[in-house]
Amino acid sequence: MKPLTLAATLPLTALALTGAAPLPSGDLTVSITLPRINSASYHRPYVAVWIERPDQTAVRTLSIWYDTGLPAGEGKDWLKDIRTWWRKDGRGLTLPADGVSGPTRAPGTQTVTIPASRLRDLPAGNYVLAVEAARELGGRELVRVPFRLGAANTASGTGETELGAVRVSVAR
């Protein structure tokens, strides 16, 4: 499995030009447990991780795991199966995207760290971290975890079928 690198996508100079008050947030860490599923035809799930406002409008896609290695971008044919994400943000994105797209991951606990620099333009306040998994010949599940930007906090939620525990922590 290739580790997913979540590099800062904006140089600091660009951030300085956005004019947004710097958010006193630290890095955002999301850990997602992909359950081990006994199936004769197991395929790793496609997973999308994004931030929503409390009214469920999408703010930003943080991470999307799909078959990035297939020729001619064929892995994108099934992105629409991550239905909620596809409708809220996915179909407007150009993929692959640096620091966002990566290959599918194995069952177990997977961690994504979003550097504070990628969140600096977001005002402090309440948000929802959404994780959606869709598996070939399997099911689909969406877990939403309310959290806060602008102060250290942790939050968690859990899925029942395609997702296990989802933990969110904001460093400060």
Binding site: D77, K80, R83, R87, G90
Partner: peptide, 8 residues
């Protein structure tokens, strides 16, 4: 009715 990718 809803598709993704470059060709479908």
């Amino acid at each position: 009715t809803v598709l993704s990718g470059s060709d479908a």
